[in-house]
Nucleic acid binder design. Structure first.
Length: 276
DNA sequence: AGTTAAACCTGGTTGC
DNA sequence: TGCAACCAGGTTTAAC
C-alpha cells in the first residue's frame, strides 16, 4: 500500500497528537516482518517525541525523564496503516500492534504483515541503522540535484523502473508513483538507467517530485485499504494516468495503456508518449 | 558487482 | 457455487 505520500500523510497525522504522549501499555498481535527487538515493558513510561520519516520508514523517538530512550522504527509494508484511537476497541484479526498512551492508542493494522515495528536505541543504532543504510536520497532534499540523479543512474544498467523501485538511488516511489512519474516524464520504463541523458534525468526528478507532491495533497492513494490516521481514504488513484489502467486510453495521447512485468512487478506505461 | 527471482502472508478478483 | 490461479501499495535475502 504505502509509498512515500501515504507514509508522510500518516506521519503528519500522528506527529502532533502523539507529541509528548506517555506510553502506558503495549499490545502485540501476530508476528510482523521482524520481532520488536525488546521487551514491551521497556517502552512503558516513555514519552513520544517528534515523529520523523525516512523513505517509507517512520521513526518514533522515545524519552524517559527528558533523556533519550531509543525509539520505534515502523514500516507499513504492503498493506499496513496506522490509526489513532481515543479509546481503542477490541483488536481485530489484523491489528498487530497497539501503542497505548495517555493521549490515545496508535494501532497498526496490517493484513499481510509485511510491516514492522522495531525497537532501536537510535536511528543510527542496530537494527535501525542496517535497515536505513541502503536508502537513497530523499526526493525533496534540495541537495539532491538533477546532476546527482544523473550521476547515480550512470552506474546502473537495470531498467529505470527497477532502479526507482529499488530505492537505493532515490526513495519514496513505489509501484504507483514510479509508473506515474515515468509517464509524466515521457520515459519508457525499460530504458536502461545509464542511458538516460542529463536532460531526461532532470525531467524525471521533476516529474517524481510533482507526482509525489500531488499525491501528498490528495492524501495519498487508496487502492483497497489504505487510510490515514483518521480513517480517511486518499484520492490520488483517481488521477492516475497509467497505473492500473491497462487497455484504457492514455490521457495524453489516447493510445491504450500497456502492462508489462519487470522484476516481478506490474509496470503500466504508454508506448505512445514514453520513449527509450 | 549488479541484477533478477524467491520469500514473507492474507485476501480479493478472475476464470474454468 | 466451488475452487484454483493470479494479483496486490514493499523489501530483504538468496541465487544467476
Amino acid at each position: 500500500m504505502p509509498e512515500l505520500p501515504e507514509v508522510e500523510v500518516t506521519r503528519q497525522g500522528i506527529d502532533e497528537p502523539l507529541r509528548g504522549a506517555r506510553v502506558t501499555s503495549v499490545r502485540l498481535g501476530k508476528p510482523l516482518r521482524w520481532p520488536l527487538g525488546c521487551r514491551p515493558d521497556r517502552l512503558l513510561g516513555t514519552e513520544v517525541g517528534p515523529v520523523l520519516r525516512r523513505g517509507k520508514y517512520l521513526w518514533l523517538p522515545l524519552s524517559r525523564g527528558g533523556q533519550p530512550a531509543g525509539g520505534l522504527l515502523m514500516h507499513l509494508g504492503m498493506s499496513g496503516s496506522l490509526a489513532l484511537h481515543g479509546t481503542a476497541g477490541e483488536p481485530g484479526p489484523h491489528d498487530h500492534f497497539d501503542l497505548v498512551t495517555d493521549r490515545g492508542t496508535l494501532r497498526l493494522t496490517d493484513p499481510r504483515r509485511f510491516g514492522a515495528v522495531v525497537y532501536a536505541p537510535g536511528m543510527d543504532q542496530p537494527p535501525a541503522d542496517r535497515l536505513l543504510a541502503r536508502l537513497g536520497a530523499e526526493p525533496f532534499d534540495t541537495g539532491f540535484t538533477a546532476q546527482a540523479l544523473h550521476q547515480a543512474l550512470r552506474g546502473r544498467r537495470a531498467p529505470i523502473k527497477a532502479v526507482l523501485l529499488a530505492g537505493d538511488v532515490v526513495v519514496g516511489a513505489g509501484n504507483i508513483y514510479a509508473c506515474e512519474a515515468l509517464h509524466q516524464a515521457g520515459i519508457h520504463p525499460s530504458t536502461p538507467s545509464h542511458r538516460l541523458s542529463a536532460r531526461r534525468a532532470a525531467a524525471l526528478l521533476e516529474a517524481l517530485r510533482a507526482t509525489l507532491a500531488r499525491a501528498l495533497v490528495l492524501g495519498g492513494s487508496t487502492l483497497r485499504d489504505f487510510s490515514d490516521v483518521h480513517g480517511a481514504s486518499g484520492a490520488f488513484q483517481a488521477e492516475a494516468a497509467v497505473y492500473g489502467r491497462a487497455g484504457q486510453p492514455c490521457p495524453r495521447c489516447a493510445r491504450p495503456v500497456r502492462r508489462l512485468v519487470q522484476s516481478g512487478r506490474s509496470t503500466y506505461y504508454c508506448a505512445g508518449c514514453q520513449r527509450r
